[in-house]
Design a protein around this nucleic acid. Structure first.
Length: 208
DNA sequence: TTCGTGACGGTTGAA
DNA sequence: CATTCAACCGTCACG
Protein backbone atom coordinates (compact mmCIF):
# COMPACT_ATOMS: atom_id res chain seq x y z
CA UNK A 1 0.00 0.00 0.00
CA UNK A 2 2.61 2.47 0.90
CA UNK A 3 4.84 1.31 -1.86
CA UNK A 4 3.29 3.74 -4.21
CA UNK A 5 5.37 6.71 -4.91
CA UNK A 6 3.51 9.61 -3.45
CA UNK A 7 6.72 11.50 -3.23
CA UNK A 8 5.32 14.85 -3.86
CA UNK A 9 1.83 15.94 -3.47
CA UNK A 10 1.98 14.93 -7.10
CA UNK A 11 -1.32 13.66 -8.14
CA UNK A 12 -1.82 11.80 -4.95
CA UNK A 13 -5.51 12.22 -5.54
CA UNK A 14 -7.60 10.47 -8.06
CA UNK A 15 -9.63 7.35 -7.86
CA UNK A 16 -8.76 3.82 -6.98
CA UNK A 17 -9.54 0.98 -9.34
CA UNK A 18 -10.53 -2.57 -8.55
CA UNK A 19 -6.93 -3.60 -8.29
CA UNK A 20 -6.10 -0.90 -5.82
CA UNK A 21 -4.31 1.25 -8.32
CA UNK A 22 -4.67 5.00 -8.44
CA UNK A 23 -5.77 6.69 -11.59
CA UNK A 24 -7.18 10.01 -12.67
CA UNK A 25 -10.34 9.58 -14.64
CA UNK A 26 -10.07 11.04 -18.08
CA UNK A 27 -6.33 11.43 -17.89
CA UNK A 28 -3.59 9.23 -19.28
CA UNK A 29 -1.55 7.08 -16.96
CA UNK A 30 1.77 8.65 -15.99
CA UNK A 31 4.55 7.96 -18.42
CA UNK A 32 6.54 6.17 -15.77
CA UNK A 33 3.85 3.55 -15.49
CA UNK A 34 3.34 3.29 -19.22
CA UNK A 35 7.03 2.70 -19.54
CA UNK A 36 7.02 0.03 -16.88
CA UNK A 37 4.23 -1.79 -18.61
CA UNK A 38 6.25 -2.02 -21.78
CA UNK A 39 9.43 -2.92 -19.96
CA UNK A 40 7.82 -5.73 -18.05
CA UNK A 41 6.25 -7.05 -21.20
CA UNK A 42 9.63 -7.15 -22.86
CA UNK A 43 10.94 -9.07 -19.93
CA UNK A 44 8.46 -11.74 -20.77
CA UNK A 45 5.96 -10.94 -18.05
CA UNK A 46 2.44 -11.69 -19.12
CA UNK A 47 -0.04 -8.87 -19.48
CA UNK A 48 -2.28 -10.30 -16.80
CA UNK A 49 0.63 -10.29 -14.37
CA UNK A 50 1.65 -6.81 -15.35
CA UNK A 51 -1.87 -5.73 -14.71
CA UNK A 52 -1.84 -7.13 -11.22
CA UNK A 53 1.63 -5.99 -10.41
CA UNK A 54 1.15 -2.41 -11.46
CA UNK A 55 -2.49 -2.35 -10.48
CA UNK A 56 -3.58 -1.16 -13.85
CA UNK A 57 -6.63 -2.63 -15.51
CA UNK A 58 -5.85 -5.32 -18.01
CA UNK A 59 -7.82 -3.43 -20.60
CA UNK A 60 -5.42 -0.60 -20.25
CA UNK A 61 -2.35 -2.81 -20.29
CA UNK A 62 -3.69 -4.42 -23.40
CA UNK A 63 -4.26 -1.10 -25.05
CA UNK A 64 -0.89 0.37 -24.21
CA UNK A 65 0.95 -2.73 -25.32
CA UNK A 66 -0.98 -2.90 -28.55
CA UNK A 67 -0.27 0.71 -29.26
CA UNK A 68 3.39 0.25 -28.52
CA UNK A 69 3.62 -2.68 -30.88
CA UNK A 70 2.05 -0.62 -33.56
CA UNK A 71 3.68 2.73 -33.17
CA UNK A 72 6.75 2.11 -31.08
CA UNK A 73 5.66 4.81 -28.71
CA UNK A 74 4.47 4.51 -25.16
CA UNK A 75 2.94 7.95 -25.22
CA UNK A 76 -0.80 8.47 -25.19
CA UNK A 77 -2.49 9.97 -28.18
CA UNK A 78 -3.15 13.62 -28.59
CA UNK A 79 -6.07 14.66 -26.47
CA UNK A 80 -8.41 17.50 -27.13
CA UNK A 81 -8.43 20.10 -29.80
CA UNK A 82 -10.65 19.92 -32.80
CA UNK A 83 -10.22 18.95 -36.36
CA UNK A 84 -10.15 21.67 -38.91
CA UNK A 85 -13.61 22.20 -40.27
CA UNK A 86 -12.83 24.68 -42.97
CA UNK A 87 -9.17 25.16 -42.33
CA UNK A 88 -8.10 22.02 -44.07
CA UNK A 89 -4.47 21.43 -44.99
CA UNK A 90 -5.30 22.20 -48.57
CA UNK A 91 -6.86 25.52 -47.68
CA UNK A 92 -3.89 26.42 -45.55
CA UNK A 93 -1.58 25.58 -48.40
CA UNK A 94 -3.41 27.92 -50.72
CA UNK A 95 -3.49 30.69 -48.19
CA UNK A 96 0.22 30.34 -47.74
CA UNK A 97 0.72 30.60 -51.46
CA UNK A 98 -1.40 33.69 -51.73
CA UNK A 99 0.47 35.27 -48.89
CA UNK A 100 3.83 34.43 -50.35
CA UNK A 101 2.81 35.79 -53.70
CA UNK A 102 1.60 39.00 -52.13
CA UNK A 103 2.76 39.57 -48.55
CA UNK A 104 0.53 42.61 -48.28
CA UNK A 105 -2.63 40.76 -49.15
CA UNK A 106 -5.63 41.28 -46.88
CA UNK A 107 -7.55 38.47 -45.28
CA UNK A 108 -10.70 39.37 -47.13
CA UNK A 109 -8.78 39.28 -50.39
CA UNK A 110 -7.57 35.82 -49.57
CA UNK A 111 -11.13 34.82 -48.89
CA UNK A 112 -12.19 36.08 -52.27
CA UNK A 113 -9.41 34.22 -53.96
CA UNK A 114 -10.24 30.97 -52.26
CA UNK A 115 -13.68 31.30 -53.75
CA UNK A 116 -12.46 32.47 -57.12
CA UNK A 117 -9.99 29.60 -57.39
CA UNK A 118 -12.60 27.11 -56.27
CA UNK A 119 -10.52 26.01 -53.35
CA UNK A 120 -13.63 26.52 -51.28
CA UNK A 121 -17.23 27.23 -51.98
CA UNK A 122 -19.30 29.77 -50.17
CA UNK A 123 -20.36 27.16 -47.65
CA UNK A 124 -16.96 26.14 -46.42
CA UNK A 125 -14.83 29.15 -47.04
CA UNK A 126 -13.09 30.27 -43.85
CA UNK A 127 -14.21 33.49 -42.28
CA UNK A 128 -11.98 36.49 -42.48
CA UNK A 129 -11.13 36.11 -38.83
CA UNK A 130 -10.28 32.47 -39.38
CA UNK A 131 -7.97 33.45 -42.18
CA UNK A 132 -6.33 36.03 -39.96
CA UNK A 133 -5.76 33.39 -37.37
CA UNK A 134 -4.31 31.03 -39.93
CA UNK A 135 -1.94 33.72 -41.07
CA UNK A 136 -0.91 34.37 -37.53
CA UNK A 137 -0.69 30.83 -36.21
CA UNK A 138 0.16 28.60 -39.10
CA UNK A 139 2.00 30.83 -41.42
CA UNK A 140 3.43 33.56 -39.30
CA UNK A 141 6.85 33.94 -40.84
CA UNK A 142 6.39 32.96 -44.40
CA UNK A 143 10.10 32.88 -44.89
CA UNK A 144 10.60 29.19 -45.33
CA UNK A 145 7.82 27.22 -43.80
CA UNK A 146 9.01 23.95 -45.25
CA UNK A 147 7.33 22.97 -48.42
CA UNK A 148 6.06 19.67 -47.31
CA UNK A 149 2.71 19.65 -45.76
CA UNK A 150 3.19 17.43 -42.80
CA UNK A 151 -0.44 17.42 -42.17
CA UNK A 152 -0.47 16.80 -38.49
CA UNK A 153 3.13 16.60 -37.63
CA UNK A 154 3.86 20.21 -37.39
CA UNK A 155 2.72 20.64 -33.86
CA UNK A 156 4.57 17.72 -32.42
CA UNK A 157 7.86 19.23 -31.56
CA UNK A 158 7.35 22.75 -30.44
CA UNK A 159 8.68 22.20 -26.99
CA UNK A 160 8.17 19.20 -24.87
CA UNK A 161 6.30 16.43 -26.50
CA UNK A 162 3.74 15.96 -23.86
CA UNK A 163 2.30 17.62 -20.82
CA UNK A 164 4.36 20.54 -19.81
CA UNK A 165 2.32 21.51 -16.83
CA UNK A 166 0.71 18.31 -15.88
CA UNK A 167 2.48 16.92 -12.91
CA UNK A 168 3.60 13.68 -14.35
CA UNK A 169 6.94 12.44 -13.32
CA UNK A 170 8.75 12.64 -16.58
CA UNK A 171 11.69 10.35 -16.19
CA UNK A 172 13.20 10.66 -19.59
CA UNK A 173 12.37 11.79 -23.05
CA UNK A 174 10.93 8.52 -24.19
CA UNK A 175 10.38 8.36 -27.85
CA UNK A 176 10.46 11.88 -29.19
CA UNK A 177 6.77 11.65 -29.17
CA UNK A 178 6.31 12.63 -32.70
CA UNK A 179 8.36 10.61 -35.08
CA UNK A 180 6.65 7.47 -34.13
CA UNK A 181 7.27 5.76 -37.37
CA UNK A 182 10.92 6.09 -36.77
CA UNK A 183 11.38 3.03 -34.65
CA UNK A 184 9.71 0.15 -36.26
CA UNK A 185 11.51 -2.26 -34.09
CA UNK A 186 8.93 -3.06 -31.57
CA UNK A 187 10.51 -5.26 -29.07
CA UNK A 188 13.99 -3.97 -29.38
CA UNK A 189 13.71 -0.42 -28.60
CA UNK A 190 12.39 0.03 -25.15
CA UNK A 191 13.99 3.19 -23.97
CA UNK A 192 15.11 1.78 -20.73
CA UNK A 193 18.56 3.03 -20.15
CA UNK A 194 18.10 4.42 -16.74
CA UNK A 195 16.92 1.28 -15.09
CA UNK A 196 20.45 0.16 -14.59
CA UNK A 197 20.50 -3.18 -12.93
CA UNK A 198 18.27 -2.61 -10.02
CA UNK A 199 15.25 -4.73 -10.41
CA UNK A 200 12.85 -3.17 -12.74
CA UNK A 201 10.15 -3.33 -10.20
CA UNK A 202 11.48 -0.68 -7.96
CA UNK A 203 8.81 1.87 -8.28
CA UNK A 204 10.60 5.03 -7.61
CA UNK A 205 13.72 5.65 -9.53
CA UNK A 206 12.08 8.82 -10.56
CA UNK A 207 9.79 10.23 -8.04
CA UNK A 208 9.47 13.86 -8.42
C1' DT B 1 -7.75 -17.88 -16.70
C1' DT B 2 -6.47 -14.66 -20.08
C1' DC B 3 -7.36 -11.01 -23.03
C1' DG B 4 -9.88 -8.22 -26.78
C1' DT B 5 -13.53 -5.11 -27.00
C1' DG B 6 -16.81 -1.39 -26.32
C1' DA B 7 -19.86 1.34 -23.23
C1' DC B 8 -19.22 4.68 -19.92
C1' DG B 9 -18.06 8.91 -17.49
C1' DG B 10 -14.40 11.89 -17.74
C1' DT B 11 -10.84 15.74 -19.56
C1' DT B 12 -8.70 18.48 -23.03
C1' DG B 13 -7.95 22.10 -26.39
C1' DA B 14 -8.22 24.09 -31.46
C1' DA B 15 -11.57 26.31 -33.70
C1' DC C 1 -13.14 35.92 -23.72
C1' DA C 2 -16.58 31.63 -23.46
C1' DT C 3 -18.45 27.87 -25.83
C1' DT C 4 -18.37 23.73 -28.91
C1' DC C 5 -17.50 19.21 -29.61
C1' DA C 6 -14.61 15.50 -31.38
C1' DA C 7 -10.56 13.58 -30.04
C1' DC C 8 -8.41 10.70 -26.31
C1' DC C 9 -8.29 8.72 -21.46
C1' DG C 10 -8.69 4.28 -18.04
C1' DT C 11 -11.97 1.43 -15.85
C1' DC C 12 -15.29 -1.97 -15.90
C1' DA C 13 -17.83 -5.86 -17.45
C1' DC C 14 -18.89 -9.05 -20.91
C1' DG C 15 -17.77 -12.96 -23.69
Amino acid sequence: MLSVCLCHAEQAYGEVNQLGGVFVNGRPLPNAIRLRIVELAQLGIRPCDISRQLRVSHGCVSKILARYNETGSILPGAIGGSKPRVTTPNVVKHIREYKQGDPGIFAWEIRDRLLADNVCDKYNVPSVSSISRILRNKIGNLSQPSQYENVKQQSSQPTIPYNHLYQYPYPNPISPGSTKVGSHHPGVHVPTGHCQHSQVLAISPFCQ
